[in-house]
Design a protein around this nucleic acid. Structure first.
Lengths: 353, 353
DNA sequence: TTGAAAGCGCTAACAC
DNA sequence: GTGTTAGCGCTTTCAA
């Protein structure tokens, strides 16, 4: 017994509208979709009734009929991470502009979840799936996931923020190398030559690329690479930054600058440095990736690489919509980051120059 | 021309399965829904084909047929705020357990957006709508929004994290008064008697309640209420905390403790205090609301009121599902907060005792 | 310009 | 147990 659908409140359909307007359901549909001519007089009558009853066409019925749901499925690693939250909201806004609705699923680091989400979105008959984070970040793509996706892509196109080798997913990525260039060049210009790199796992594509680029950049400026200035595999959280920085400082290793793999790691790094009685940026500069709001909350505020989430979202949706419509798009699109200089980076200490 | 649906990859239906299994579509449907007996032999044949073709039933068709979409619409103010992100993820997890999918919309502080989202979710024929933040936070509910919601509730039940006077929405709220009790009692026990309250707007229900309770608690402990220790209407962000604390300290007003309206405001307050050369908690204690991860990132880590997002999400979904099924539920449910003591609160300075 | 009718893919009532 | 049938609410030919 559904209390929310009493007799006087039955949910109304185009047939109800049609009957009262003295036209056929087809005609009501025509004014709804607005892609066929209807005599103005009738159109007005229909419009008034729609208004009167606050009629909203049933999206399920519509998509059943034209096999397009007008919804974009999004799988994110975790929206509680502001990086994904920023991207998701940017996508939502862009999608709305394009006439689409989004449906968000969080995989929360669970590989099984990712596959379940894929299936769920498939059941919902979303028109396209965008995946950000998770398996698509892997340096070497997971075989069974690739198979799953390939199977799915027989019917639903996908766009990812990383890659998925062996699939035809569209890739919209931030230019990780360029990010590293921005950060290292900024530091080197400030006179730094002992630059640490902390956080991140090497089996993550973007991290791996950053690490490679870091080495290239050092050698470009004739700075020797030092094993003791980079963390072995770590994570992307506060703990990672805090632990590695503590270890480094504890061993008497004193870089003049630290590149954190993201804003969270940076927070841990900053805390460790401050607890060691050192000042940022006077003694040590700290820079990072992502430019989430965390970088503005911290004291000092962080110098960080920004991705321009708004245009990232737009590009993602643009690509997704193009994929739906079967229009050609480049398989890989790289987005340029920009550097946001704040308080956490400064000239290298005198003694080091 | 849909490139993703070539001939060999047509999306298959129960009819395809039925034909190949030599049974009727109804039988396939029966094994799908699993709520009618099917001879085991046939069942197996069907199951194998489902597996073979990786068949996923079309959720649109299903909901069209039984007028239940099994999706829960969620309107949040802004998932980029960790408070909402935590709640959303908790809801998503609870919803999945209950066999539901969630659809998230962010209103982003736009009143028009809120109404649009309502309509969109209505079109999607979600089974229930949960709104967290936005108009449901208003101390005095917006007339036209109430009307809109009442209209909607003829067909779709709603549950809100605040209230909507003049509607029959289910309310699942955090006990704001209890929150304030926790914080003030903690501070008073630590010997504080000059307790400031910073941030928040008085036209927001929970803030208003906190403010009232703050006054009650002071009087309960015979502490005089001082106008100069509370901010007039402010916001819920870093700036608010920073600005008000600066003003207070600048005017020579020196509370021994500050209650921030949320973690973000707390960050601004902490920074202001530190910039004035004061120590937390030795000179001034700072406590806040929400226990988002921000409270752990900050230095010192914040003492804050926690809401147990997991059970909040569960309660929200439980109520939503009950509403869908027409089961009785209390119209108002209050969730008890708990106090998380970290580094930012300590005994009041000696001179003040 | 408009209506009749078929169909989108599924569920459920009804027979057998 | 299982098939037949009738919708669910919309869009879209096809005729008129």
């Amino acid at each position: 017994m559904d209390v929310h659908r009493s007799i006087e409140n039955k949910v109304i359909t185009i047939y109800d509208i049609a009957r009262e307007a003295g036209v056929s359901a087809a005609t009501v549909s025509r004014v709804l979709t607005n892609n066929a001519n209807v005599r103005n007089e009738k159109k007005q009558r229909v419009l008034e009734l729609i208004e009167k009853y606050n009629f909203k066409p049933n999206a399920m019925a519509r998509s059943l009929s034209d096999t397009k749901s007008k919804v974009i499925g999004i799988i994110a690693a975790d929206v509680r991470n502001p990086y994904y939250a920023d991207m998701f909201v940017a996508c939502e806004i862009a999608a709305q502009k394009a006439g689409y609705t989004v449906m968000l699923c969080n995989s929360l680091g669970e590989q099984i979840q990712e596959e379940k989400q894929l299936e769920k979105l498939q059941e919902q008959r979303v028109d396209v799936i965008i995946q950000m984070g998770g398996r698509v970040d892997d340096l070497v793509s997971n075989k069974s996931y690739v198979e799953k996706v390939n199977q799915l892509m027989n019917t639903i196109p996908m766009v990812v923020t990383g890659k998925l080798d062996g699939t035809q997913c569209y890739q919209v990525q931030i230019d990780a190398m360029k990010c590293m260039d921005l950060l290292t060049e900024h530091l080197i210009e400030l006179g730094h030559r002992e630059i640490a790199l902390i956080g991140g796992r090497m089996d993550v594509l973007s991290t791996f690329e950053k690490f490679q680029r870091y080495k290239q950049n050092l050698s470009k400026y004739q700075i020797p690479f030092r094993e003791d200035l980079v963390s072995e595999d770590g994570g992307y959280d506060y703990e990672t930054g805090y632990t590695y920085m503590n270890r480094m400082l504890g061993q008497g290793i004193r870089p003049t600058a630290v590149i954190a793999i993201n804003d969270f790691a940076a927070v841990g790094i900053v805390r460790s440095i401050q607890e060691h009685g050192l000042c940022i940026p006077q003694d040590i500069s700290v820079v990072s990736y992502d430019n989430t709001y965390v970088s503005e909350l911290l004291s000092p505020k962080l110098t960080t690489a920004d991705y321009n989430y708004e245009s990232f979202g737009e590009k993602l949706i643009e690509t997704a919509v193009a994929a739906i419509e079967g229009r050609e798009m480049p398989k890989i699109q790289l987005l340029p980051p920009t550097l946001i200089v704040r308080e956490s980076s400064g000239r290298a200490p005198e003694t080091k120059e």
